[in-house]
Structures are given as C-alpha cells and as structure tokens.
Design a protein around this nucleic acid. Structure first.
Lengths: 209, 209
DNA sequence: GGCTATTTTAAACGCGTGTTTGAACTGAAT
DNA sequence: ATTCAGTTCAAACACGCGTTTAAAATAGCC
C-alpha cells in the first residue's frame, strides 16, 4: 500500500476518534508506520490532509446521495419526510463496503468538522459539495410544502446537529446502551433509531410565534 | 472586581467561542488584564478553571431546573412532552440576568463540553449534578409512558445533541439566518424554535424493528 | 512602623506541536 | 554503470503551550 494511503487510513480513524485538533501528525505517522515528514511531503500541510480525508469519503458518497435525492424529487407520488431521510441510509451504509467501519468513521468525522476548527470544514463541504444540500432541501420542500423557508432552515440545522452529534459520540453511547440493555447494537441500529426522531422533528407542527 | 472573577468572565466567553482546547491561558489572562500565572495561582490548573467556569453556571441553574421539573412530575394532570421541555426555557433565559449573554454562553459551553476534552466534562456534569438528569427522565416517563427505557435513552441523547450542537454553532447560524431572512432573531428565538422540534422528535411513533 | 500572609509579577522551564532541511536511499531509463 | 526524479529519513527549527519559580508588591493586623 502506498504511503499516501497508509497516512489517510491512519488519519481518518484518529481524526474521528480524537478530533482534528486533538490528533498530532506524530500520532498519525507512527500509527501508519511512515516517517513524520511524509505528511508534509505528500499533502503539504495538516489542513490539506484533513481536506483529503474528507474528500475521500465525500467523493464516494455525494454522487449516490444526489442520485437518491433527485430520484425522490422526480417521483410520481409525493414522498414523506421519512422517505426523504431514509434516502440517506443506503448510501451511508454502503460506506462500510468502501472502507472498514466507513459509515461510523465518516459520520464521526462530520461531527468533528462542525465543532473543531471553527467552521472551516463546514465551509469546505458546502462549497465543494453544494448539490447534496440543494437536492436535500428541494426534497424536503416537496415532502412538506407548508414549511416556510426560514422554518426549514432551522429544522434542517437541528437535524444536522442531531445526526452529527449523535455520531460523534456514538461509540460511547453504544457502549453505555450495551451495558444497560445488553442487546446487540451497531451503527446501523443507531441510524434506524434516529431517522424517526429527525423525521418527526422536521414534521413538527409549526409554532405560532 | 477580583482577579478570580476577571479570569472567570474572560474564560467563559473565550471557552464558549473557541472551545476549551482552542483557548490558551495566555489569551484568557491577557483578555482579563491579569498576569498569566494568576490562573494557576487561583485555580491550580486549566482543568480546574474549566470546572469552575461550568460550576458557576450549574450552581445557579440546577436548583431552578430541579424545581421546575419536579413541579411537573407532581402536577395533577399529566403533562405533555412540550411542557416538559418548556420547563427549561425560563431557567435558561434567566441566566441572562445572572450574567450578560449568560444563556447562549452557557449553552455553547455545554456543547463544547460534550465534544472537546473526550467526555471528561460529561462525567463532571452527570456526577456533580445528577438530580437534573433523573428529574428530567422521570418527567419524560410521565409524559410519554409508552416509551421504553431504551428508546427513551436514545431519544434523550438525540435531544441533547440537537440542543448542544445548535447552541454551539448558534452565533454562526443566527448570522446566516439574519442575512437570509433579515428579521430579528436571538437566542430566545432559537430556543422557541427548537422546543417543538425536540418535543416532536421524542414523541415520534415507536419504530417497529 | 514593622511584621506577616496574601497576591502579583516577570522570567524561565520542559514539552509537544507543525513544518523545514538536506542528506540518504530507491528504482527505473539512458 | 550512470543518471536522475521520486521518495524516505533523522534531525533540527521556531513557536505556543501549561506550569513553576522566586522575587517584588500589596494589604491586613498588632
């Protein structure tokens, strides 16, 4: 395996686990069994490495997401919100074939990106992969046309928060849940539990202000 | 004003804004116009300073929260989930009288605590202020008794995620919202919007697995 | 005023960070 | 065999971090 890929593989696990700021290049390179200077040689800087880690997932994921969402938009019968959110499930779970533990690692990374590094990753994602966002809001608009643009703005961000936060602490939560209820549970189980929650949240009756 | 309080005031604004790991003692002490060594003299270490910042809010907040939640539990008529979550509003907003921008600062700090510092703050809060949590789950159990303990565990964590994540990025979101929809909006407005969302999420129909 | 305890101060310490350097090594094309 | 671009390597660099030190300043009490 190439040095570049060894670095990417080590980096995304560590980034997901301890955050971008919380992971040093020395940890990454020693985990990957490569020289410290290799990161700067192959990627230029730590920031570029972060982008590369995220791009590897997004380049795989975003075409499938765009396809699934636009299929929903062009369907004959009006979709439910539950169906809109469910469109994410398959592409996300397919990341596990793309890379071991790909789904949970990616979602954890997403969570890190929103809270670490003062929003630079949020900027990166929304500017580099805008179609995912526009297709998604379009689908929600079809499924729940009464929702004003402003209300939708907030509810989608609440949803983003729910997903992202849940996933960035999912390992700890799964541990707790397994101790307390001792039934098997994995990332797919968490996703299946969170979908009804966010769908109901977005579908909530509109508050009179 | 005492040096200790100058440090606390400077610290909680900076911590809320840039996270615990992202804020250095040098930033804090220069913002507070005190000597660098004052933090270690008065608090012992950075970790203890973080605890002190959180305790200042929690000691003010937790009695009111416990009271409001236990009042709901002992009420004659069964409360709705919306009422349970609304119990948080007044105590939270009263933090603005306790300290300027107290509400949003505290909620941002809470968000930081969950993602920074690998969960040590989560441990601190749940062990130091357990009654808030137990009263809350008790109230939810009354409002929605069909919900299994396991399902409730997950939905409460989803809720925590929604709140915490929203608040830790609330400033940026309010900025965006104000540009796009140009109507006035503040932290109270965000809270009023998020309550229906989380209430509906927790109240979602139980998925058949 | 003189003594004591508390607080403030400037300076330094040790360490970990991201990055850079220049030499050593590798492997294929001439 | 030699050349040369591509890659690896150990070492160092400059910097920021939390913390510690010991002297100076301050305040409170007899």
């Amino acid at each position: 395996m190439s040095t570049k890929n060894k670095i990417l593989d080590a980096a995304d696990v560590l980034f997901a686990d301890k955050g971008f700021n919380g992971t040093s290049l020395r940890e990454i390179t020693s985990q990957a069994n490569v020289n410290l200077a290799a990161v700067n040689y192959h990627f230029g800087s730590k920031k570029e490495l972060i982008k590369a880690v995220m791009s590897r997932y997004m380049d795989e994921l975003s075409p499938h997401l765009e396809l699934a969402l636009s299929a929903i938009c062009e369907a004959e019968n009006k979709p439910s919100l539950h169906e809109v959110f469910s469109a994410f499930i398959e592409p996300l779970l397919n990341l596990n074939q793309f890379k071991e533990n790909g789904t949970s690692t990616f979602l954890q990374l997403l969570g890190r990106g929103y809270t670490d590094s003062q929003g630079f990753l949020r900027w990166f994602l929304t500017t580099q992969y805008p179609n995912v966002f526009t297709n998604f809001t379009k689908a929600v608009k079809i499924a729940y046309p009464q929702l004003s643009t402003e209300e939708m703005f907030w509810r989608l961000h609440f949803t983003m928060g729910t997903i992202v936060f849940t996933m960035s602490s999912s390992e700890a939560l799964i541990d707790i849940a397994q101790n307390d209820f001792d039934n098997q549970l994995d990332i797919a189980g968490v996703i299946e539990r969170v979908i009804p929650y966010v769908a109901a949240g977005v579908a909530a009756p509109i508050a009179k202000l």
